[in-house]
Design a protein around this nucleic acid. Sequence first.
DNA 1: ATAATAAAGGACAAGTTTGTCCTTTATTAT
DNA 2: ATAATAAAGGACAAACTTGTCCTTTATTAT
Lengths: 143, 143
Amino acid sequence: MLSITCQTAIKAITYIASKYPENKKVGLKEIAIHINESEHTIGKVLQKLSKLSLISSHKGPKGGFFISKTQHNLPLLLIVKAIEGDSYFEMCGLGLSKCSDKHPCPIHKDFKPVRESFRKFCAKMTIGDLYSDLNVGNAFLIG
Amino acid sequence: MLSITCQTAIKAITYIASKYPENKKVGLKEIAIHINESEHTIGKVLQKLSKLSLISSHKGPKGGFFISKTQHNLPLLLIVKAIEGDSYFEMCGLGLSKCSDKHPCPIHKDFKPVRESFRKFCAKMTIGDLYSDLNVGNAFLIG
DNA sequence: ATAATAAAGGACAAGTTTGTCCTTTATTAT
DNA sequence: ATAATAAAGGACAAACTTGTCCTTTATTAT
């Protein structure tokens, strides 16, 4: 349902956020190990999130990625939209560009609620929520 | 959420099924016009569905694609699985191969119900259901 | 100031998905 | 039997996504 790039983004941001309580910055190398993805790939996607101010970063020694208190409270929705495109949660299930309640595709009526339930969960869940289970060992980013 | 190939498959099968009441076979050219996709592309995907007996076809003059009474009652789920793969509705939201209730990813708890609601709707809706609104002008395959 | 570190960014390489073309096979009608 | 029609199937081409590398820029510590 989500692209691999978006999955990587969420895993990376979750790891970064998990260090928020300790107020610790994390580097690409460290993230790569903990989410089991290539350092380069992660760098690419975090660059994008950083430019959009969904995460923060500092260059140089002792630099790395981290999230601010504001970013800690951002909904997952913003990350998904940043990677998948703004209209991701309005997409027709069959790819019609003008699909709507008035001009529906054959699965519109049933697909829309599914899409909406996904959107609602993404809108409700925050970056901070992502790591809470992780830090107590009840969720995992690898496996 | 669904691949373009799968969207094309559903649109094509919907058009084919829409001629079930008239007991009419339809050719690639005709399908192509009514779902606004290339004849070649449609041929490729229908070949697959045909081989899996999700649709029927006859070669030669007066040939074309059609669905049997049995196929008319098949759930949409089978088409989706045929194209997207059997494990489509078990996929982890973050792409982890071993994500489960016991070893969940950070979004597992919320993502699973969404995925399930999509699966349930695909399991419930039949090929026949797909075209009922279409034939009375309440649904569209183009636009 | 200089050197070392780490993200930013551009360029490109690989892989996957999607789309096209062409030949073969089966069926029908003459 | 022959010709015409239409799907089946294989091979390949284009497009898009994903992954990698290398250079640049900013920051820190010495």
